[in-house]
Structure formats: structure tokens, C-alpha cells
Design a protein around this nucleic acid. Structure first.
Lengths: 232, 232
DNA sequence: TGCCGGGTGGCAATGGCGTTCTCGTTTTTC
DNA sequence: GAAAAACGAGAACGCCATTGCCACCCGGCA
């Protein structure tokens, strides 16, 4: 069920961690045309990311993406079935980025609970970082995209689920590892994972309904809550 | 700041718990015209609720509301500043309904932790009941509305927050009561409340990303998680 | 050399939907 | 009974996603 399990025979210019959406969008053209197509798709994505960063929301128009990427409408619909596909692609791309980040954060720590903590905190920061936060070059504003995933999930639950899989999977493993050592105590690891994931990833929503920054739920607090929730 | 503070001189057909949106929509007309206006507003709401029930989503058009309610476009914009206002009204109305329901569920129990549990479970069921669930007459399908509140919160955080206030407030009191007796242990009651509320109200989202009903997070599980999260 | 078909760009056209405007007709109000 | 407010019907506008259509470019093939 891992993202790259069925991608064994892609051509060698692809690294094996290419996410699923890219495959989908590009496989319409074959062989030599592929690299050209990929470059084109990437330009759409870059333009869209830029727009999201600037506007702080996913409410850009296709036209804006075209202007920005200097490509044609015709071309857009050749690579994407519609705007939702583009958003889905952006989401997959973003999760992919986050996965790397999280893998780093967890590192090779030997203490399972410490790993789980690192993961949780980083995930919270990753989802909840305010739009204003300056961020390192090459990364982009993910809040609008995380937010939009909620709507996306209404129309394409399987797709969103598949896109989230890398994160869910990593978290599940951490939970299981911690449970195996008795550091936490869970009846069903999957359900526990779902609860943690949801509590952590979406506390930005609760935070939005709070006025003073003093009462915001911090990553640390979310972690504490989850830790005890898991009977750690 | 309570909803009815400035309604001292309304006509007697109003009970004192009229929610805020109704006030807003109706206060444009005065005195005798008020009851007429209220009836009209109510027809819009009823029509919209029906549509939501039938479609299982908030994606109805204004036109459909007009056809259904047999009223004019002109009239609609006289009472609502736009579609968002209508949705907000529906949300407020729904929360209002839920509040009564929750008050019942909590009842006059003397055991604080038991009250908190009852509240939590009921709230979870209230938010997460699948669209297909048959429900008692006079109630309506709230999932689509709860879902939409997430989007609404993006554009009107204060409004959504205000609408949620009755629920948040009730939960806060329960948490404080339980904490006072030492049944749970929280550093900051407000933040704890936010965490519980969010975990419970939005587990439908996590559940959407789950395939088999076997792995769904139940009300009971959400409660257990929160209970320990609160160090109960 | 000329024909052909796919990939392409440009752009007009369509259709859905929220919102605004206009105008003539009630209904309220005093 | 007249001025004012409310109302109904629907045309009109603006925005946007999506589709259609046509001309162009280019590499292969007779």
C-alpha cells in the first residue's frame, strides 16, 4: 500500500519517490515526450504554489495560473482533468514534502516515545504554521492547502486518503513501536493513529476560533494531550 | 453581549432564546412587520434545510431555495446579505438545536465526570451521524452543515466562533467542574476545552479517510481518548 | 517535395451561479 | 387617500470553470 509499490517499471529518469499524481498526469504521453510533459506540468504546479503563497489561500483562478506559467488553457486541460486535479496534485506534492521533513525530524532516535513526540510536534507545526510565518526558500505555504484538503476529502475521499498515506503510515509505525515497548497503551493502533493525526493536524481550526494568541493550542499542548490520550 | 440583551421590547410571540442571526435578519423591519418578516425568513431556512437533507450537502443554489420557498430573489437579498449569511443562519440554528439536545443529555447528573462523558458522546454522535441515519422528525441532517462550518470559519471566524459559543461554553463549564473536583487535571481549562471540542467534533473527518466501518473512531473511543488526554 | 497526424497556442463560446438592477404592482402606514 | 416601503418577476452583469474550434508547427513517410 506504500505510494511507490506499483511504480517499479517507470523509466530510470524518475526517482523512485515520485508521487502518484505526477505519474498520472504524465503517463498520457509516452517515452521521449515524457520529460517535456513533466517540465510542463511542473510549471503549472510552480505557478499555482506561487499564487497560493501570495494570496494565502487556494482561491486562485485557472487564468491566473496560465498567466503566471505562460502556458495555454489548452495545455492545462491536457494535463489535468480540472481544477480539482491540480489541487490534488498540489496536496500530494505538499504531503510528499512534509514526509521528508518528518522523516528528518524523527531521525534515528532509539527512544520510541521520543520519536513519536518529535513527529507529533513537527506535524503540528507543519499544519498550523500561520500564513505570515516566513519560511525557508523552496518551501511553500501549506496552510491553505491543508485547509483545502478538508473540502477535497468531501469529493474525493480515496484520493485524499491515498495522498495522506505516507504520513498516516509513518505515524502508525511510531505508535506501534511505542506500544510494543509499553510506552503507551492502545487497544487498536489504527484508531489511535487516526485520533492523534486528526487532533494534531487540525488544531489550526480550533485556533482559528480563538481570539488572543494566549489561548492558542500549541504543538506542545497538543502533544501532551495526545500522549495522555494514549495513556503514555 | 448575550443574544437577547437588546431584545427586551420584542413582541411577546418571541421566546427569549431567539438566536442571534434571526435578530440580525429580522431587525431590519420593525414592530408589526417583524412577525411577517420572521415568517418569511423561516421559509427560506426551511427550504434550505430541506434541500440539504435531500442532497446531503450544502451545495444548493439560491434559485433552488427560491423555487422551494416560493419567494422572490428580491426578497432573499432583502433578508440575507448573501449566501454565506444564509449558511451562517443555518449553522446558528443547527447549533441552537444541538445545544438543547446536549443540555438534555447532560441532564442534572451530579457526577461531573459522568456529565462530561455524556456531553462528549452526544456531541460526537451529533456531529458524526452519517448522512443516511434516519432521524427523528423535525430534526435535520447536520453533517453537511458541520462540514461547511469549516469553510465558513475561513471567511468569518468571529461569526462561527460566536455561533459555536453555546456549545463551547457548556463544555468549558463541564471541564471546569470536573477539574474542580480533581476528576481531571488541566493546566488551562480553555485550551483543554478547545482540544476536546475539536477532537470530538471533527472525527468525522478522520472517519471519512477510513475504508472499513470496523476502523471508524466511535464516540466511545473519542471519549476515552479525551478522558485520558485530560488525565482523568 | 508534399501530405499527414499529433501536439499546441490562441481565443471565442457555453453554462452555472451569485449578485445587482429595474420597473411596475401591491401593501403598510399615517 | 396619498406617500412610503415592501414585493414579485425577471433581465442583466460579472466571474469562473470547462469545451470547442481553427490555424500553426514539426517530424516521419511515400
Amino acid at each position: 500500500m506504500s505510494a511507490d509499490s506499483d511504480m517499479a517499471e517507470v523509466d530510470p529518469t524518475q526517482d523512485e519517490s515520485t508521487p502518484a499524481w505526477r505519474e498520472r498526469a504524465v503517463s498520457r504521453s509516452l517515452g521521449a515526450a515524457r520529460s517535456r510533459a513533466e517540465r510542463r506540468v511542473q510549471r503549472f504546479l510552480d505557478a499555482a504554489f506561487e499564487l497560493i503563497d501570495e494570496k494565502g489561500s487556494t482561491e486562485f483562478t485557472i487564468q491566473e495560473v496560465l498567466d503566471r506559467s505562460k502556458q495555454s488553457l489548452r495545455g492545462f486541460y491536457q494535463y489535468f482533468d480540472g481544477k480539482d486535479e491540480l489541487l490534488l496534485a498540489l496536496f500530494e506534492e505538499t504531503v510528499h514534502e512534509a514526509t521528508d521533513d518528518l522523516r528528518d525530524a524523527v531521525g534515528a532516535g532509539s527512544e520510541p516515545l521520543e520519536n513519536l513526540r518529535a513527529f507529533t510536534i513537527r506535524l503540528h507545526e507543519w499544519c498550523d504554521d500561520p500564513v505570515e510565518t516566513p519560511r525557508k526558500r523552496g518551501t511553500h505555504n501549506r496552510r491553505p492547502i491543508v485547509e483545502f484538503s478538508v473540502q477535497l476529502a468531501a469529493n474525493h475521499p480515496e484520493r485524499v486518503k491515498a495522498a495522506m498515506a505516507p504520513i498516516s503510515h509513518m505515524l502508525l509505525e511510531l505508535v506501534e513501536a511505542a506500544a510494543a515497548l509499553g510506552a503507551i497503551e492502545v487497544a487498536d493502533a489504527r484508531r489511535a493513529t487516526a485520533l492523534v493525526q486528526q487532533t494534531v493536524m487540525y488544531s489550526w481550526f480550533a485556533n482559528r476560533l480563538v481570539e488572543s494568541p494566549r489561548t492558542r493550542v500549541s504543538a506542545e499542548e497538543a502533544w501532551e494531550f495526545c500522549l495522555h490520550g494514549l495513556r503514555g
